[in-house]
Design a binder for these strands. Structure first.
Length: 492
RNA sequence: CGGGAUGUAGCGCAGUCCGGUUAGCGCACCACGUUAGGGACGUGGGGGUCGCAGGUUCAAAUCCUGUCAUCCCGACCA
């Protein structure tokens, strides 16, 4: 008798943690805040990677790989950048161990101290710009449109599976351009790519916007973000794209000979999404029975479960199942047939629901007699008895329906949780009792932003780009004039 | 970095206060049998340096000292 998941409505964190572990996505490794991504979780990440990679290439980018370790001095070159990452840097200081005097253990060999410590990359801007200096001589070398898939490390004090781990997987795009306009367009293009990916593949609605100066990436002149809303009413920053101006070009002396024959600094962008998207996926769609995966990212889209008593029955059912599998696979649908006999059908039903498989087909003796199968959809938990004749078309169509339904459902929830408020009382009330995004007037100062954060734990997620929020108003805290509403929320 | 907990079988825990046969339970695992349309049951079985190192004692999972690690709550962050 396996235990049920905790109820989502009772303790969202506990539900999330247990779901991630039990569905086979990931677990804590027992080493600091390091996470093990398990095969099933990694399979989902690989599907995300494949689609994102395709979209990057369609927008003209190429992949490359840069070193894991970065000399400490590189970080010192861009002042804001150091400040942003210094507090969470893992540092390599030695390159050798030796056995202890008593011969029982090992210790760091003090003789093997590095002259300059190396930093395990928290992000790769510095080493990449140091490299780009050598790559870029003239306007003919531009633009440089490179992405890398990598791991990075940020020594976070407190971690949560996928949402904040000390080491995480991500992609980071780093581009160099001739003009400011071109770089800004690139940063905007990539946030659009992320928004499109979230909508069309993750079935996750997001709000595009720009960050306030305090929430900006360390070293950026503008940070574009996509903000998603989780089921517990908290926001999750799901992807960012930065216009870096000429900050890194100047710090790393990356100049090119322009069309006019003058030496100019290049304009830069960087953009990234991480395994945090896995957490976003879980917290957008899942329910008390477990994970709910959008068909486009599900490693297994359809599972077939035989129901049988005797071996002869299993043979007949398996023949039928194979026929259906062949038809589904011919349509590019990934199918698993689970004819294992160590678990009963009821156990399997629960197990594949926990894993979020979008469609389940059950075939039993009754179905063989009637020429039918039982089809269950994960998103609504509805079951239908369907003639097995046109099952491939039915399932193909159903997968699309589920994909759309998940998006529509998440969108409806998200839209219900955007609230406009005009007073601080109302602001606090919505944050505490309803949750979600709050559109409110802000006087534009960092002081007010900090004060509101201190009082309510809510931060300005972004100044939205997807809808017009400009109107005259008064700051909810200070009463000072404001020209537009901004988007607040408590965030992960 | 401040506060609080916990380390006992693969996982989850009891036992520790008040020291005493062979360290126990649930799940998982193995074998056999019965079962199978929403998390089956029976019988038998395997698996432990009680985090680590010292100390007290006739006797330590239990008491003492030290140490290491992990988790939770804060501040910080994709």
């Amino acid at each position: 008798m396996a235990k049920k998941l905790p109820k989502r409505s009772e303790d969202y964190s506990k539900w999330y943690n247990e779901l991630v572990v039990r569905a086979g996505l990931a677990e804590n490794s027992g080493v600091r805040g390091m996470m093990v991504i398990k095969p099933y979780g990694y399979a989902i990440w690989e599907k995300m990677q494949a689609q994102l990679d395709k979209m990057f290439k369609e927008t003209g980018h190429q992949n490359a790989y840069f070193p894991l370790l970065i000399p400490m001095s590189y970080f010192a070159k861009e002042a804001q950048h150091v400040e942003g990452f210094a507090k969470e840097a893992a540092v390599v200081t030695h390159y050798r161990l030796r056995t202890t005097a008593d011969g029982k253990g090992i210790e760091v060999d003090p003789a093997a101290k590095l002259e300059e410590p190396l930093i395990i990359r928290p992000t790769s801007e510095t080493i990449i710009w140091d490299t780009y200096r050598r790559w870029i001589q003239s306007y003919r070398d531009l633009p440089v449109l490179v992405n890398q898939w990598a791991n990075v490390m940020r020594w976070e004090m407190r971690t949560r599976l996928f949402l904040r781990t000390a080491e995480f997987l991500w992609q980071e795009g780093h581009t160099a351009h001739e003009t400011k306009d071109e770089a800004v367009r690139e940063a905007e293009q990539m946030i659009d790519v992320y928004a499109e990916f979230a909508r069309d593949y993750m079935a996750m609605p997001v709000i595009r916007g720009v960050k306030t100066p305090t929430e900006r990436f360390a070293g950026a002149e503008e940070t574009y973000t996509i903000e998603a809303l989780m089921q517990d009413g908290k926001a999750l920053q799901s992807g960012t794209s930065h216009f870096l101006g000429q900050n890194f070009a100047k710090a790393f002396d990356v100049k090119y000979l322009s069309r006019e024959g003058k030496l100019e600094y290049v304009w830069a962008t960087s953009w990234g999404v991480s395994t945090r998207l896995m957490g976003a996926l879980v917290m957008t769609h899942s329910d008390d029975n477990g994970l709910v995966l959008p068909p486009k990212l599900a490693p297994i889209q359809v599972v077939i479960i035989p129901i049988f008593r005797k071996a002869e029955q299993l043979e007949q059912i398996s023949a039928k199942a194979r026929e259906i599998m062949d038809k589904l696979r011919a349509k590019g649908i990934s199918v698993k047939y689970d004819d294992s006999d160590n678990y009963k059908p009821g156990w399997k039903f629960n197990e594949y629901e926990l894993k979020g498989v979008p469609v389940r087909i059950a075939i039993g003796p009754r179905d063989l007699e009637n020429g039918t199968v039982e089809v269950a959809r994960r998103d609504t938990l509805e079951k239908f008895v369907i003639p097995s004749e046109g099952i491939d078309l039915y399932v193909e169509n159903l997968l699309d329906k589920i994909q759309n339904n998940l998006y529509e459902r998440a969108l409806a929830y998200r839209n219900e949780h955007i609230t406009s408020v005009d007073s601080f009382e109302e602001f606090k009330d919505v944050l505490e009792n309803k949750g979600g995004f709050v559109l409110a007037h802000w006087d534009g100062t960092a002081e007010t932003e900090a004060k509101i954060k201190e009082l309510t734990k809510a931060t300005i997620r972004c100044i939205p780009l997807d809808f017009d929020t400009s109107e005259e108003g008064k700051d909810i805290l200070t009463g000072k004039p404001s020209k537009r509403r901004v988007l607040f929320a408590k965030a992960y």
